[in-house]
Amino acid sequence: MPKPIRMGGRTWVAAWAVLCVAGLAATAGLRSAPAPDPQPARPVSAECREFIASVKTQLDEAEQEGGDGILAFSRGRVSTVDCADELRNLFRGER
């Protein structure tokens, strides 16, 4: 069975330095690359616009009444249109 090749301390330090320099160069290259184009805005359906408007109305009414800060929303009907993204934007403050 052959004996493993022993590497000295200088060899390990040199290998580590080469890997660090390669990582720094790759990071610099990625940071200088242009950002991808943003996704175009997806049109909001009329049903979602109506639902978002009713949610805004209910929020404004609750704010005026000075309630305890807990609101519950229910659509009342099953819809095939998903308005989750628009609701997230509304509650994140992107009105």
Rank of each mutant, 00 (worst) to 15 (best):
T80N: 08
A46V: 10
F73A: 03
Q64D: 13
Q39W: 08
F51W: 11
L19D: 06
T11K: 12
A22Q: 01
S74K: 13
D37T: 12
V18A: 09
A25E: 00
G66E: 00
A22H: 04
A62C: 03
A14V: 06
R77P: 02
S74D: 13
T27M: 12
D82I: 05
I52Q: 03
F51T: 12
L71H: 00
S79D: 08
R31V: 02
A46C: 05
L71W: 03
E61H: 05
A35C: 03
C48I: 00
V13S: 09
L24Q: 02
R77Q: 12
S79Y: 13
I70P: 04
A25G: 08
L24P: 02
A28S: 04
E47N: 05
G66V: 05
S45H: 06
L59W: 03
A14K: 11
A41E: 14
A15Y: 01
R77W: 08
T57H: 15
T80G: 09
E61A: 14
F73S: 02
A46H: 06
I70W: 10
S32A: 11
P36F: 00
A17R: 08
R42F: 11
C20K: 07
P43N: 15
A22L: 11
Q39Y: 02
C48T: 02
I70R: 09
S74L: 11
G29A: 11
P34I: 06
V44Y: 01
S79V: 07
S74P: 01
E61V: 10
F51N: 13
C20G: 12
G29C: 02
L71F: 04
A25T: 14
A26H: 11
T27R: 11
V81E: 14
C20S: 11
G29N: 09
E50T: 15
R77V: 12
V18G: 04
E63I: 03
A14W: 00
I70L: 15
A53D: 14
D68R: 08
F51E: 14
G69V: 10
Q39D: 07
L59A: 03
G29Y: 07
D68I: 02
P43I: 09
S74M: 09
L19S: 08
Q39P: 08
S79H: 06
A14M: 08
R75M: 13
D82P: 00
A35T: 02
Q64I: 10
A62N: 09
Q39C: 02
L30P: 05
R31K: 06
V44M: 15
R49L: 14
S45M: 04
R49T: 12
G66S: 02
Q39A: 12
D37G: 02
C20N: 10
